[in-house]
Design a binder for these strands. Sequence first.
DNA 1: CTGCAACTATACCTAAGAGGTATAATGATG
DNA 2: CATCATTATACCTCTTAGGTATAGTTGCAG
Lengths: 298, 298
Amino acid sequence: MELRQLKYFEAVARTRNFSRAAEELHIAQPPLSRQIQNLEEELGVLLLDRSSRPMKLTNAGAFFFEQASQLLAKIDEVKAATAKLSSDKKLWMGVGFVPSILYSEIPGFIQNWRSTNEKSEISLFELLSPEQPEALLSGKIDVGLGRLAIDVEGITNIHLNEEKMILAVSSESPLVQQNSISMEEILNHTLILYPSTPRPSFADHVMRHFQVRGLTVRNTYETTGVQAAIGFAAAGMGVALVPESVVVLERRDVAYLPLTDESVTTPLLMFIRTNNDSPHVKEFIAYLRERINPAAQV
Amino acid sequence: MELRQLKYFEAVARTRNFSRAAEELHIAQPPLSRQIQNLEEELGVLLLDRSSRPMKLTNAGAFFFEQASQLLAKIDEVKAATAKLSSDKKLWMGVGFVPSILYSEIPGFIQNWRSTNEKSEISLFELLSPEQPEALLSGKIDVGLGRLAIDVEGITNIHLNEEKMILAVSSESPLVQQNSISMEEILNHTLILYPSTPRPSFADHVMRHFQVRGLTVRNTYETTGVQAAIGFAAAGMGVALVPESVVVLERRDVAYLPLTDESVTTPLLMFIRTNNDSPHVKEFIAYLRERINPAAQV
DNA sequence: CTGCAACTATACCTAAGAGGTATAATGATG
DNA sequence: CATCATTATACCTCTTAGGTATAGTTGCAG
C-alpha cells in the first residue's frame, strides 16, 4: 500500500466523484480509478459502490475512509512536529511507563518539567515491563519507568524508591471496617493479579511477597491491568494488591486498606541505556530522582 | 512523502545500519540511502548522524522513528480491520460525541449494544458541535450526539431528552453547605465556561440561560473543555455549570450542587443525515432513544 | 423507452523515478 | 597509515504512475 492511495481514496470518498477528485488531485481521472482499484484489490475489499450515482461508500469503505483521514492527518502532524523540533532546537525524549505508574503522580512531575523547560519535548508511552528493553535499545524511548528490574546487556537500572502496597477491596466488603489487613488474611479472599501477559509481570512480584513469607496462594484471578483489577475488586470478585500511588484512581465503589506488614513494598525503577551520555537525559533523570525521593540524593 | 520511506527509515533507525536494513528490505543499499536522503530533504531535517559508527539518531530522528513506527503499526491494523469488517460482513458505524456526553453513561449503552449485536462494529469519536455536520455529511460518522442544534441542510436533529444542569464547586468552598443554589447567587463567583473555541459552543448555551433571566454575567473564565473546567473549579478558581450526567467524574476535590431553578437544562440531541436509510443505523437510533428516554417513545 | 449528459472503466502510450551495479569517499581500528 | 566496514555518488534499467483516447454505465428528461 502507498500513501498516495490513501490520499486518493480520501479525496474520492469525500467528493463521492472520481472526476472531481482527480481534478482536485491534479491528475487525470483514469489513473485515479486505477489506483483505487489497486487499493481495493490489495485490501481484498470493495470500498466504493459505483453502481449508483452519486457513488456510495460500502460499509468497509466508510470505515476505511474514517481511518485513512485520521492517518493522513496524523502523518501531517508528525511531519510538522519533526520539522518544528529541529528548527526550534528542541530536545525530544520518549519516556515509557508501566501503567500503574502512568496513573500516579509522576506524569504530573513530567508536566512540571515540561513547563519549566521550554526546549524540552517529551512523549509518554504506556509500555509493559518486557516491552521496555527493546524500546530503550532501539531509541524509541530514552527513559523507562517500571517495577521489575531489567537484566539486559546495555540497560542500567536506577532504584528510585520503595513504595508500600495497599489492598483494593469493594466498598461493600466487611473488610472496610478494619484499619489494616495481614498477608495471611488476604488469602481468605480471591487474589486478583495483573497483568496476565506478558510475563514476568507485576503479578509475579506480588506472588513472591507471599512465597517469601511461606504463604501459599490458592484462589487467584488474573486480569489485564490495574484498572481492570480495581474494577474487579469493586465488583466484589476479590481483592487486589496495588501500589499505594494508585489511590488517585478514586472510585466510590472501591476502598483501599493498608497492610499490617509494612515490608510489603514494590520498587519504582528507572531504566536508561547504559551508554546514554545525553546531558538532556541526565538532567531529566536528576530532576525525577529529586522529585520522587529527595532523601536518596548524593 | 511515501509510505515506502517510512518503512525504510524505520528499518534503518532500528538496525542503525544501512547495509543490514537494505538486506532486510530486499533492496540494494544505494537506493535505500537515496530514499532516506529524499525523506530528510522533504522534512528539511537531518534524521541520522552518519558521522559516527554505529550510526546515531538525531533528536528529530528519534522522535520521527517513534512516530513512524506507530503509524506503520496503525496502518497495518487498519488494513486488517477493513478486510475483517468485510469478510465478517460486519456493519460499521461511526458515532461522534461532544466530550461532555463521552464522559456520561451513554458510551456504556453503546458497549451494551455492541455486545448484543455481534454484526455491529462501532467507533466513537470525540467531535465538538461545529465539527459534527461535516463529519456526518462526509460519511465519517453516521450519528452525532451533542447539545447544540445543528441547522445545516441535509442534517436532522432528534431531541433525546432534557437534562438538568448542576454546579461544580471546589469541595473546600463554603457553598457545599447549601443544598441548592440560585442562578443569581452563581454570579457572585467567577463562572468557568467551556469550550472557548470553536464557537458556538456549550459556553454560549450557558450564557443564554443567564440572559433570558435578565442576569448579567460579569466574571467569566474560559477554558478548553469539561474536564479542564471541573479541574479549575476544584482548584477554587470559580464555579462551572455542567450537565448532571458528568457527576460520574467523581473527584475528592469537587462537589456538585443542584440548582434552585430546575428549568436550567441542556438538551441531548442526536444528529443524522436526513437521507440516511440504513436499517442498521435506524435500529441503533431506536435503541438509543429507548435507553435514554423511554417515555418519549411513540 | 430512448437519447443525451455525466460519469467511470479499459487500452495503450510516455515518462518519472525506484532499484540495480560499479565504484569512490569516509569513518573506525590496530 | 593501511585496512576493513560502511555510506555516498554515478549511471543504467525497468517498473509503474500518469496521460490521452475511447468504450461502457448510469440517471434522467422528454
